[in-house]
Nucleic acid binder design. Structure first.
Length: 299
DNA sequence: CCGCGGGCCTGAGAGC
DNA sequence: TGCTCTCAGGCCCGCG
């Protein structure tokens, strides 16, 4: 499910329940998610106040008063649910709406705010890991991540430089978290469509050829268009609460609704929505993943 | 070092 | 209805 807009939506939903509150009790209900939990996972959480809840790429990061950081990744099917505190409920009990599958509630945080925070992940591609904040540079999961696409460092010059020496498609380059961190299959397809750029184009074509004056290659207009498209699609998707195809939920349990704004993703065979284009959205496989695009207006 | 393909899991949907 | 097959938004790892 989760690419940057979904993770950011989750972060905003968790923030009021977690930030400034203490983790009174933590439950890891099985021994592993994608990886085994650290032996001291629960012990390092219980009694800790969450001083801040941030996001880096598709990772959520909870700062703890102890100086630890709790890193959380949603994998493909992970979701968080916040159940507001209820003084009438017995301690440790929480209410679920009827009919929901709770078999995959793997981690539960009972917060001093009264809220219960539940991590559900059927496929268990998600994971959680605790490390010391002053060792964040040593964290292999974070090392090598490219810039935040909505941050100040990410611009056409930077993107062109990162793509200049690549021998791969533009689609594959944008999915590479070392180039830019946080995009996944949906938003790469949507951004390329909005920029009218072909997913098959070589990544290196975002930069001009190296010359004496431009040793790293200068960004082309294509690179500028692409950065604008990435900004626009991510901001719109965050505003919409992310995209819900099957697993993504906001922490309230509500669906995101950006999937209604897809222009190519999951629209194979439908008419291209670009004004006056008249093309048909096509799908093909690139690096083992579906690419959706309009061959007529994406060049 | 880089790019690619396989694998990790479960569930949903299509086709028979 | 029920079986089998394919596919899914991510990311690590090993190979060439």
């Amino acid at each position: 499910m989760p690419e940057l807009p979904e993770v950011e939506t989750v972060r905003r939903g968790l923030q009021p329940a977690m930030e400034g509150a203490k983790i009174v009790r933590a439950e890891a209900r099985r021994k592993d998610l994608r990886f085994p939990f650290q032996k001291d996972f629960v012990a390092r959480l219980e009694g800790q106040t969450v001083t801040g809840l941030g996001r880096r790429a598709k990772y959520l990061m909870a700062d703890l008063a102890s100086g630890d950081v709790l890193l959380m990744h949603l994998g493909m099917s992970g979701s968080f649910r916040v159940i507001a505190g209820d003084s009438k409920a017995a301690p440790g009990k929480f209410h679920h709406p009827r009919g929901e599958d709770r078999a995959h509630d793997h981690v539960v945080f009972h917060m001093s705010s009264g809220a219960t925070v539940i991590f559900n992940d059927p496929r268990r591609f998600g994971y959680m890991k605790i490390f010391a904040r002053d060792r964040i540079e040593d964290e292999p999961l974070l090392r090598g991540l490219g810039p935040e696409p909505l941050g100040n460092e990410f611009d056409a010059a930077m993107l062109a430089r990162a793509c200049a020496n690549r021998k791969t498609s533009l689609k594959a380059a944008l999915l590479d978290q070392r180039v830019v961190a946080g995009l996944g299959n949906i938003y790469v397809c949507e951004a390329l469509f909005r920029a009218h750029l072909s997913p098959r184009r070589l990544a290196a074509t975002l930069a001009t050829k190296k010359t004496k004056g431009t040793p790293g290659g200068e960004p082309t207009d294509h690179a500028k268009r692409l950065v604008s498209a990435i900004h626009a699609v991510l901001n719109q998707a965050i505003k919409a609460g992310g995209s819900s195809l099957r697993d993504h939920r906001q922490t309230s349990g509500e669906l995101g609704y950006f999937q209604h704004s897809f222009q190519v993703y999951d629209r194979e065979g439908k008419k291209c929505e670009s004004p006056g284009c008249g093309g048909i959205v096509r799908r093909f496989t690139q690096n083992g993943r579906s690419t959706f695009w309009c061959p007529k207006c994406q060049r």
